[in-house]
Every structure is written in C-alpha cells, then in structure tokens.
Design a protein around this nucleic acid. Structure first.
Lengths: 338, 338
DNA sequence: CTGAAAGCGCTTACAG
DNA sequence: CTGAAAGCGCTTACAG
C-alpha cells in the first residue's frame, strides 16, 4: 500500500501539499495539484482511514442499536438509515442486541472507544441510568423508544394517539370487551400505547379490566401462544377484539385462530401495528397502524448529523413526533373493497 | 478522554508497561499490573481504537455486502453474521447496495482504505472483473452468490439440486407444464436453479418451452405482476404449476390469484424458496425450499476468520455446499396435516 | 520484568 | 502558494 510519503516523493513535493490535495484545500497551485493527482493515480494511492481517523478524531461511522434485525420494522429502519448515512459519506455499524443488556453495553462502548462518532438508540435494553453516562462521549439520538428523564433528542411517533385511534376504531365497530397486547412492561413505548387504549375505553365509559392487558408479545409465536391461552377464557367474559403491538403478533393470532376454525373478524377482531408486508398477505388482511418507518429513520439520522455538525445555532428539536395512520382492512371489518 | 500517557503518569510507570497491561502481555509484575489497572479505572481510561488500528494495521471490522436488508433472507443472514462476528470481538459494517453497482464499488473501497479487515460478498452487482482487483487488499468470501472464474472461497447451497428437487416434486404430483420464475438473467445462482429445473423436466422426457421461464422476479409486487401476465395466457397452454425463486414472489402470486378467485393449488400449484415466515402465514401455506440461512451466515464468517488468522496451514475450503430441504405444504398439495 | 525511542500514516498550525 | 516539524495515541523491537 502506497503512503502519502511515497506520493510526495514521486510528485517531488511535500507531504503537506499532498495532504492539501487529498482534502481539497484551496491554496494549491493547479500545476502542483496535477502533479500530486498523477502520482496518486500512478501508485493507486488511497489515504489510510485509520490514520485519518486518529488525526481528525472522527470516524465517519455511526452505530445504530436495534433489538433484532429480522424484525421488519427494524430492517426497514436500518435500510433507510443506511441510505441517509451513505448520502453523507458515513458508514453504519449494525448493533443487533438481541435484547441482551450486555450486548447493548458493549455497543455503547464503541462511542467511548471512539470507534463511532455517534450512536442511535432505536432500542434500549438497559435502564436510562446505565445508558446516560455514555452521552458524555458523543452524540446520542433516541429513535422511537425512550425513557423518562431522558436528556437526548428523540424522534418518534405519538404512540399514545396510535393506541387511542386503534382502540377507538374497535369501539366504533361496537366492541366493548377489547384486549391489549403490549410489549415490555414499564417501557414507555408500550405504556403509551396502553394509555391511548385506556383513554379510548374511558371515553366510552367502559370499566377496564386489568386482565385484558397482556405483556411480552413480540413475535408470531407469541401471537399463537396468546391465542391458545385466550381460547381457554370463558366465552361470555372473553374479549371480542384485540389490539396488538405488532403485525407479527397479529398474524400469529390470526394463523392460530384459523387453525382452530375461528372466523375472523366475526369471532375476534384483530388490529396489528406497523403495516408490514405480511399485513396484506394474510387472509383476512390486517387492520393496522402504519408507521412512517423511512421517515423515522431519516429524521433520526438528520438530527444526528445536526449534532455532529455542532452548528449549535440550529439546535435539533428535543422531541419530534411523526405522523401515523390507521389502515382499515378485513381483520376488523368485513367486506372492504380490495 | 484519558490517554495512555496520563495513565502512565498516574501509575508512575512507562507507557510501554501500560500498553502491556492493555494487551495482556505476560511479562508484567503483578504489583505494577495492579497499579496500572487502578490508574486506568480511576481515569476511566479506555484505549483509543483509531490509534490501535493504525498501529496494529487491523480494524476488527468486517463488511458484509448485501442487496437489500429488508429481504428476510438477508436480514436473517446478517443477524447470524452479527452474532458470530461479535463472538470474535468483531464489528459488522452493513453494506446495503440496493442493487447499485456504484454503491457496491464504494463499499469495496472500504477494503482498500483499510476500514475493514475483510469483506463478505453475499450479493454481487458488478462483474467479477470489476470486483476481482479488490481481492488484493484483503480477504474476500463469497456467500451464496458467485461468478464463473471466481477465485475466492464460496459458501453456498446447491442451487441446482434445489431447483431439481422442487421441480421433481411438481412432476411427481402430475404437473407437466411448469413455469420457472428466476431472478437475474445470467447470474449463476438463478441459472443453477433453472438448470435443476431443466434437468428434472428432461428426466421426465418433457420438451421444455423457453417461454415458461421468466426473469427478474424478486418481490411480492413482481409476483402479483407476473400473475396478471400469466392470466392472459390461453387456458390450455398455460402452465399448471410454478417454481419461484423466493417466498415473496410466491406470496405475491398467491395473493393476486386469490383476488381473482383462483383455487390454489388446484388451478395453480406454487413452490416458493427460502421458507420465510410468510410461507406459513399465507393461506394456503407455501411449499418451499428451506435454506439453512443461519448456517450459511455462520460458515461464511468462520471461513473469513480462517483467512484472517492466516494460519494458512488449514486453508479454508474453496467451495462449501450446505444442505437444504424441500418442505411440502398446501400450495402444492391439498389436505396436508397441519 | 521494565522503559526510552521510533514509528504507524496522516493533518495542521506556523513560518515563510 | 508551499514545506519542515510537531503530534494524534498507540505498539513494538531493542536494550538493559
């Protein structure tokens, strides 16, 4: 591998001048610039980025922490983030925690060891007290998830409102016993959705039963499992509709319900979340909440770049709420036109 | 940020000794080692990785090139790769080319600029002649995809056999007019599957019609589009079964076929590829080829680490073929027990 | 077992 | 517009 020194020698100039050409520094005569470019070409020279990183004290790399890449919500998010990052000449390091607190911590260390310039938290496994100290080592942006007392910019949608709209949709269809499948207990994201769910029920003067809420539902299998449990509830106390935290869970419920000969939505109306591809592939298709995944990803990175630019004059917004919408399909309403 | 110099000062020792402690070098007395550790702790010291990278001339980072992360095949692959990489203390850089030749090239540059130690090609957009020169800059492993004349280790499954087994399954069910939806034309992966498809047909003495093969089918929408085209073919010349290159395509065909009131598999038998989650969520469920995605991802990284270890005594295999299996479901056969 | 010194490949004041 | 020199934070022969 050729180094800057060899280029300088071949061009008959100093390393300083070569460096200036590399970095498009203005004060270089056209003639010498050309000599340098020729020498670089001849040697197939390319700057060593480890050296540049050390000198410039920046890596042009951003870490993005997610819980699992195989979840279409996260892969969609990462897809868009990668696009925005590369537009800015940045790399993305994939931090797939698989919901492990330890892995998350090891990825946070990337910021401390200067392996990345900033870190985007699209998932948080640890308590905020554990994560907070790392904010001292570089910019951190929260994406979708958050924690009370958090002191970093947050890009997300209004989960409470989404829970409200989804539940209200079921109420308007006449349902009065509605179950809520939330994600992690005590996580704001889940609690917000539940709060919206509760608000809608209260608006209709319905006395909420705590046993209508279930936690820890994430995957297709969780959905299937939940349905089997649900089936054991006595018929006349059993909810007639369910609001889930993900299309995967909804699809699992649907799939298992069909196996047991249930008629969806007649016997059980189901609302998903995310408007993933599977939402339109299953039969009946899923009513769901569409999140603007690309927009969330893009905004999170744009906020990160604002922080990185340290043009602190235009400080990024502390919290940004993106729009969402309810998409009504046959898992809640019969005979929708396709 | 504390540096090694500050740690040395606080510990009253040389930077050399501190470095030895960092790198677990044996010849350090327990007493001094403890002094160093104390100083490091007190200062919250952590080595600057840019400096380590420059000195050691390695980055402990691997690039993985894929065409799109939202494809469950790739996200599954990356998920496992990330796991194996982090087991070895390596980071993964996500190179999502979105099928752009230019983006692929810019990611190959990572190897040349020493931003990664090695690169895994799980997708190839450029011709091999374009990619080949980069092998001079560090180890490269091909994963699933390949090109004729390629001179790097390859981890993949036997696509030709998979195409054969899938087609034979349809033949055994009595189908004689079978369509083949391939991916990119002139790409070995697609051509291999097609070769297997042809071999099975020939074995049954069937005269193959070239118009039964279609190219460029990747997504759900491609599947839907294909079905609409397919529908326009005259009834008695129309294939009665189709072998597709992905479950997404198969799901698209299925979805559109149902919209048009077709009975699957009676009117059209469908075979997918990959055994993705959607394969069991759609109705009828998809007959498909299960690829050992995790195994492919793991092996590709293990081969990469062998190359990186430069224990050239145990040279990695030039080509490794992993097993697959056909999973029969209701998109080809009625009344399978669930 | 320990340390002074050189050097990895760059960039950047500073001086001219 | 150009260059000599210092320095980013480490590691590693080399000498003791």
């Amino acid at each position: 591998m050729a180094t800057i020194k060899e280029v300088a020698q071949l061009a008959g100039l100093s390393r300083t001048t070569v460096s200036r050409v590399i970095n498009n520094h203005p004060y270089v005569s056209d003639e010498k610039r050309q000599q340098v470019l020729d020498a670089m070409k001849q040697l197939g020279y390319v700057p060593n980025s480890s050296a540049q990183r050390l000198r410039r004290n920046k890596t042009e790399t951003i870490a993005v922490v997610i819980s699992r890449i195989v979840n279409p919500f996260f892969s969609g998010l990462v897809d868009e983030m990668e696009r925005v990052a590369s537009e800015h000449g940045y790399q993305l390091i994939l931090c797939n925690t698989r919901q492990s607190k330890e892995k998350e911590l090891s990825y946070l260390e990337l910021l401390r060891t200067k392996q990345v310039d900033g870190i985007i938290m699209a998932s948080m496994q640890n308590e905020w007290e554990v994560i907070e100290p790392y904010t001292a080592y570089g910019p951190m942006v929260a994406c979708n998830e958050y924690r009370p007392g958090m002191s970093i910019p947050l890009v997300r949608l209004n989960q409470e409102e989404a829970g409200y709209v989804a539940t209200k949709h079921l109420l308007e269809l006449g349902h009065r016993k509605i179950a809520c499948l939330a994600g992690n207990k005590a996580i704001p994201l889940s609690e917000d959705r539940k709060a919206g769910y509760l608000r809608a029920l209260q608006e209709y003067g319905i006395k909420v039963k705590e046993e209508w809420t279930y936690y820890h539902a994430f995957s297709i299998d969780d959905g299937k499992r939940w349905f089997r449990l649900f089936q054991t509830i006595e018929t006349n106390t059993r909810p007639t509709a369910v609001f889930t935290g993900s299309d995967e869970v909804a699809a699992g419920i649907l799939s298992e319900a069909k196996v047991h000969g249930w008629n969806i939505p007649k016997d059980l109306a189901i609302v998903g979340f995310d408007n993933q591809q599977i939402a339109t592939l299953v039969t009946p298709r899923l009513t769901t909440i569409e999140q603007p995944i690309s927009l969330i990803g893009r905004r999170a990175l744009e906020v990160m770049f604002m922080l990185l630019d340290e043009q602190i004059n235009d400080l990024p917004p502390f919290e940004e709420r993106l729009p969402f919408r309810l998409i009504v399909r046959e898992s809640t309403v019969l005979a929708i036109n396709m």
